[in-house]
Simulated assay, not measured.
Amino acid sequence: HAIPMAPVSRPIQKVFTPRSQKEGAGFIIRRSIGSSDLKQTDTDPYLMLDELPPTNYAPGEFPGAPWHPHRGMDTVMYNKQGTMGHEDSMGNRGVLRDGDCQWMTAASGIEHNEGTGHPGGMLHGFQCWINLPAAHKMDPPAYKDLRAASIPTITPAAGVTAKIIAGECAGTKALVQPLVPVQYIDFMSDAQASYAHELPDASYTTCVVHVYQGSGAFGSDGRAAKAGQCILFSKEAGAVQWVAGADGLGFLLLAGVPLNEPVVWHGPFVMSTQAQIKQCFTDYQTGNFIKHKAVY
C-alpha cells in the first residue's frame, strides 16, 4: 500500500491583533475582516467579521443593533453563546440561542432589529458579511435559521471538532451552500490536538482564521496565534494546518472563492456602482427600500 502523502501546508501571510471598536448602539466588538489590517482583495468575498467577545451583561445592558437596513450582501449571525432576538420590518422574527446561526441573504433589501431587549447573561457571537455577485444583489431576500443541533458537527481527527456552518469538512457538507462558494467552519481543538484542513480546490484562494479561544501553532513553521488574533493565509493552495496549545484552541475558518468584482460600500449597503449606492439612499428615504418580503 502507498503511504498517504501529508497535505501541503498553506503558507501564512500575516498574523495580527484586530483592534476593538464600538458598533451598533455602542457595544464593543473585535473586527478582523473589514479592518485596516486587511485589504478587501485579501478577503474577497468576505466583507466583514466582527466578534462580540464573551461578555456577561446585566438585563437591558446590551443595546443590540436597533432598526437598520441592508442591501447587496449575505449577513451571518453566529451566536456562540447566549440569547439574541431578531425581527424584520416584514414581520419575520426569531430567537437565536447557544450555538444557533442565522444566514440572511439581504439581497434587494432587509430592514431589521437585532439583539434589542436582551434578557441579560453571557453573550458571545460573530457577525459576518459576505458579498453577493453583482447579478444577484437585487434578488429577493431570504433567511435560514440554523439551530445548533442541526448544524453538522464532526470529529475529523482525535480531539478536533468541526462545526460546519457553510461549505464542507472531511467529506461532510453544511446545510447552507450559498451562492458564493465559501467555507465557514468553527474548529474546536483539545490541548495538543492537531489537524490539516484541506480546502475543496485551488480556486479557494481566500483563507482567514479568527482565533477566539486558547492558542495554537499554525502552518509548517508553527506560527503562534492566540485568542483575539487573526491569521491571513496566502493565496497559494494548501491545507490549513495547526496544533492546539496547552489550553486548547477555538477558531473560525473563513475561506472562499473571490468574486473579483467592483465593491462600492457605504454603511449597510454594498453594491457595484456609486449610482446603485445613491439609489439605496433614495429608496430608503422615500419608503421604497423593501422590494420583496423575505422568505424563511
Rank of each mutant, 00 (worst) to 15 (best):
P119K: 09
G121S: 05
A162L: 02
A6M: 03
M77P: 07
M138Y: 07
V176G: 06
G120P: 12
V211Q: 07
L146F: 04
A246L: 13
V76K: 04
Q81A: 06
M271Y: 05
D283K: 00
K80S: 13
L38Y: 04
P69M: 07
Y57W: 15
A134V: 11
A134K: 15
S36F: 12
S36L: 10
L199M: 08
R223P: 08
T105A: 15
V243C: 02
P200H: 10
T153L: 01
P63F: 14
D139Y: 09
G159K: 11
V240D: 05
M5P: 10
A58P: 00
D201Q: 02
P152Q: 06
G34V: 03
G159P: 05
Y284S: 04
K14P: 12
Y184D: 02
E261V: 10
Y284N: 04
G121F: 02
F62W: 01
S234N: 14
K173D: 04
T83Y: 01
L175R: 01
S194Y: 05
C280W: 02
F126N: 08
S35K: 00
E87Y: 05
K226C: 03
K144S: 05
M77K: 05
F218S: 00
T205M: 05
P262D: 13
K293C: 11
Q213C: 01
D100S: 10
H197G: 03
N113L: 10
Q127S: 07
P7G: 00
Q279D: 12
G64Y: 14
L179E: 13
W129V: 10
I185M: 00
L249H: 00
K14M: 15
K278Y: 03
A237I: 07
P258G: 02
Q21H: 13
P262L: 12
A191V: 02
H1M: 14
M122K: 14
L199V: 10
S272E: 13
S194I: 04
S150P: 01
